[in-house]
Simulated assay, not measured.
Amino acid sequence: MARGEWGYHGRGKWNCSYKKITLIVCSINIVVALYVLRSLYISLYIFSNNNDLLSVVNYTPDQIRKMEESLRIRRENQPVNLIELVKGLKKELSSEKSVVELPPALKQKISSEILQRLKSLSANATVSDRQEAVESWRKEKLEEAKQLTLRIEGMNSTILQEEAAMLVRALESDWAVLSEEIGLWIPAEVIQLEHDDKPEGVDDSEDEVLPGRPLPPECNAELHSDYGGAAVRWGLTHHKESAEECCRACLDQAKRAKPGENKCNIWVYCPSETGCHSPDIYEHKHTECWLKYDEKPKISFKGRYPESYRNSHPSAPVIVPWVSGVVSS
């Protein structure tokens, strides 16, 4: 009995000691964890306070005065004129990008109507008379287009309903661009030069030779000349290897023209390998061949471009690069 009791009391003491040790270890771990968390919190708090302190800078009155003086000088030296000029250029560029693009058929119709209006003038009409005639046509067509946009019925119009809105803008704000696109340009003065007049720097003893076959007499070829007229064949898509072939194409078109169609009586050819200048917006390339018609053919340019024209068209060369002629009927 004594041995059994002793064994029982020994086991009880051992069990009691194990529980105490476990509690002590757990308590220590909890204390250590709390200490670590407190240290981290204090470190973060101190770091944030240090950043706030660093961000606050105290300037002296003298430093503030110098900064205000620097800002005042910077404002006074701003390139105000340059800024306004840049704003103006941006506005012009944005307005150019928003130009209305009319269908080619409508442009050709407008060109024909203006040409007919100019033909109705007398032979001795002045430049101002031609300008007034074109402006009168523009106002009439603009009013017609505006009425069409209001869907007024029973009108005898030469334009379609869906084209009216575009035409209103083209004739109002985009008239200058449209004039260049259709090749409308009325010179300040018409310069008639004799056939023996030659540009400066050209020797009178030298005869300029065009590549290709010799032109027949009925072509009436004129070097460095450009005739106006209504296009019966669009030159941008009509190329010939030589001036003789271009003239021949004009003669052939006149023979094959149907009743009521314009017969070609003017041919204009670009012999220059670098292309030929024109007052419209298109890029005219080598071997372009334009077939035109005009009841009373009039020359637009011959020899040299006028100084006034070159001032308004800086890209124009000194000498007219085209060769053209009025065919004999």
Rank of each mutant, 00 (worst) to 15 (best):
C270M: 05
S242F: 05
C250F: 02
E241I: 06
R256C: 07
P271E: 00
A254L: 14
D280G: 13
C250E: 09
S272I: 04
V268R: 13
L251E: 06
Q253D: 08
C276Q: 12
E273C: 11
E241G: 09
Q253L: 14
K240H: 12
H239W: 13
D280S: 10
E283N: 14
K240L: 12
S272E: 07
G260E: 06
S242K: 03
P259M: 10
H239A: 05
H238L: 03
A243W: 10
E261S: 14
K258C: 04
Y282M: 13
L251D: 04
P279L: 12
S278R: 15
K255R: 10
I281L: 15
L251Y: 01
A254I: 10
C247Y: 06
S278K: 13
K255H: 10
I281V: 15
Y269K: 02
H238C: 01
C264E: 09
R248N: 10
S242E: 03
H238R: 00
P271S: 07
S272F: 07
C250S: 03
E241T: 13
G260Q: 06
I266S: 07
G260T: 00
C246V: 00
E244W: 11
L251H: 08
A249V: 06
E261N: 11
A257G: 04
S242W: 02
E244I: 10
Q253V: 11
P271I: 02
C250A: 08
H284Q: 07
P279N: 15
C270D: 02
D252A: 04
R248W: 02
